[in-house]
Amino acid sequence: MQVDPRGQRWAAAITTVVLIAVLVTGSWVLLAVQAAVFAIATVCGVRYAPYGLIYQALIRPRLGPSGELEDAAPPRVAQGVGFGFALVGTVGYALELTWLGIGATAFALGAAFLNAVFGFCLGCEMYLLIRRITKKIRSDREVPA
C-alpha cells in the first residue's frame, strides 16, 4: 500500500502540537488520546489513522494529487514507535513519575517535529535500517559451505 507523504507530515504537525500541549499541561489524559491515535495508525494502518482521515477529507482535495507516494510500512512502524513512547509517557504521568512522562513525551515530540518540519521520519529510517540488517543476516546464513 502506498501513502501520500504530505499526509504523514500533516499528521506529524498535529502530533507535534498535541505533544507540546502535553508537556505544557502534564496531562496524561491528552497523552493517552495521542497514544490511541498512534495505536490506530499502527493496527489499522496510517491511511485509517484519525489525522490521516482528516487529511484525506479536508486537506488533500485542496492540494491535488501527490507527485510521489511512499510505502506505508515504514510510517506504520514509526507510528508503533510513537505509540510505545506515548504509552510510557502516559504511565509516567499517571503514576506521578513526571520525569518519565516528560522524557518519553519529549522523545516522541522530537521525532514528530523532525517529520513535520524537515520531512525526516526517524521511525521510517529505523525501519529501513532494520530491514537492511535482517536481509544481510539472512543472506549470510544462506551462503553454501
Rank of each mutant, 00 (worst) to 15 (best):
F85T: 04
F120N: 05
A104S: 10
A108L: 06
L109K: 10
E125P: 00
G89M: 00
A86P: 01
F118Y: 14
E96Y: 08
T98N: 11
C121A: 07
A104K: 05
E125H: 02
R138K: 07
R131K: 06
T98H: 11
A111T: 11
L97C: 09
G101Q: 10
E96F: 08
R132Y: 09
T90M: 08
T98P: 01
G84V: 07
L100M: 15
A112L: 13
L114M: 15
C121H: 00
A108W: 06
T105V: 09
A108E: 10
G119D: 01
G89I: 00
L109R: 08
I102F: 15
I133L: 10
V91T: 05
G89T: 00
I130Q: 09
E125S: 02
G82F: 01
I137Y: 02
L87R: 01
F118C: 12
L95D: 09
L87N: 02
A106G: 05
R138M: 08
F85Y: 07
R131C: 04
I137F: 04
A112W: 14
A116H: 15
G84P: 04
G82Q: 03
L100S: 12
L97P: 04
T134D: 08
C121W: 00
K135N: 11
R138Y: 09
E96H: 10
V117R: 04
F113W: 15
L122V: 13
Y93M: 12
R131D: 01
F107K: 04
A104T: 05
Y127H: 14
T90D: 04
E125F: 00
T98G: 08
T90F: 07
F107R: 03
F83C: 02
I102A: 13
T134H: 07
L122G: 03
F83N: 01
I137T: 06
L129E: 09
L97S: 12
G119S: 05
T105W: 08
L129S: 07
T98V: 13
F113V: 15
R138I: 09
Y93T: 06
L100D: 14
T90K: 03
T90Q: 03
I130L: 09
T134V: 13
G84M: 05
